[in-house]
Amino acid sequence: MKTSTLAIISALSISGTAIAGDANSLSFGSEQCNIEFKNDVRIEPQRLQITNANNQHLVYSSGLLEVDGQPVELNAEQQQALDDYTDKVRTYMPEVAQIALDGVKIAGVALEEVGAAFGISHNEALSDIVENIGVNIEQTFYQDGAFVMGKQSFEQLGNDIESQFDEDFEQAVEQAMVQSIGSIFIALGSELLGSGGDMDEFELRMERLGEQVEQRVEVQASQIEQRADALCHSFSELAQQEAQLLSMILELKEYQLLSN
């Protein structure tokens, strides 16, 4: 069970790649790039709002820009640059939450694989932790029909996940083992009989079983890591594009979203 438990933890850590780091920064994938979030963004179907530390708002809707309640006139070049920037914000930001949610799904797959391998039908404590993390991600990023992302989101979500692991995970593993010990012994007995009582052959079969579970999880985890690396690159480019935009539209200075 050690290998399989590690696979579950690894899968959950993949979801953490999208929210790891300090309270207002992200670390993506294997590239270890860091993106710092300066302010909060709220994305609605027809409206994008950025809120700074002073609770002032930038609102961009239907081609109209309003900063701290005052309309800002844009020339054609500024309009095009702002349109390109906001389109990418709408594309990239929700992918952070999706990567985190997909990582949680992989943890669920790992639980199912472990259960199938050992004939375990109930692993409720672990399943509840995985499910609760998914719910936390959903509720943090998706609020009242809008996608919300920023410093407060990451700080709260990171604290919630860390708390759940610290307080609940070890206890849940122990509880799952106690609840499933009978099924595990039956499965182990079947495997031992299948190997003709040869302990070396039995050990080899168990190692293969653990490797099969791990490989199934790692394939999906690798795909998510590739997405995270690509997103890291996209955010780095977006931060550079934003810096150019701030030099074009001075009113946006206090509403910077990203830096790297």
Score class of each variant (00 low, 15 high):
D200F: 05
N260G: 10
N39F: 01
E251G: 05
L64K: 14
H233E: 15
E77I: 11
N132G: 11
D198G: 09
A23L: 10
S121V: 10
Q220V: 03
L246Y: 03
G103I: 04
V96C: 04
L252G: 01
L111S: 07
M177H: 13
G29K: 12
V148Y: 07
E237D: 15
Q171S: 15
E218K: 13
S127D: 11
E77Q: 14
Y92K: 14
E201T: 13
V104T: 13
L188A: 15
L82Y: 02
L258R: 00
E174H: 15
A116I: 00
E31K: 13
I99G: 02
I120G: 09
M149V: 09
Q215V: 02
E167G: 03
A230L: 03
L48F: 13
K2A: 14
N52T: 02
A107N: 05
D144C: 04
A107E: 02
D160M: 11
L252R: 02
A116G: 10
G108R: 00
L250D: 08
N39Y: 08
L192N: 14
E251C: 10
L12C: 07
D68H: 05
Q139T: 10
Q46F: 08
E203C: 08
G150A: 10
D83W: 07
E95R: 08
S247A: 06
Q226C: 01
L126I: 13
E214C: 02
I50R: 00
L250Y: 03
D68E: 09
K38S: 09
D166V: 00
Q70R: 12
V72K: 05
L192Q: 15
F118R: 02
F169T: 06
G194H: 06
D83M: 08
E162R: 15
E95V: 07
A125F: 07
G145E: 09
I120L: 08
E191Y: 10
P45C: 00
I137G: 02
Q79D: 07
I43W: 06
Q240L: 14
Q70T: 11
H233P: 03
K151E: 15
K253G: 14
L188H: 09
F165M: 02
Q49V: 11
E73D: 15
G21E: 07
L6T: 14
Q241H: 12
E201S: 09
G69C: 01
V217C: 13
D22Q: 07
G115T: 14
G119L: 03
E66D: 05
G21Q: 08
V96R: 08
A81M: 12
I224N: 07
H233C: 01
E113R: 10
S10D: 09
G69K: 03
L209Y: 06
T140Q: 12
E170P: 07
S190C: 10
L245W: 08
E218F: 02
E225H: 12
G108E: 08
R208V: 06
E191D: 15
Q56G: 03
Q156T: 12
L126H: 05
V41D: 02
E170R: 12
L257T: 02
Q223P: 01
Y92C: 09
L26S: 11
V72N: 01
R216F: 01
L111G: 07
A11E: 01
L238F: 02
K88E: 04
K38T: 11
G134Q: 10
E191N: 14
I184T: 04
R205K: 15
S13A: 12
K253L: 06
A7S: 11
T140M: 03
E112R: 14
V178E: 13
L126G: 09
D168L: 14
N123D: 14
N123P: 11
N54Q: 12
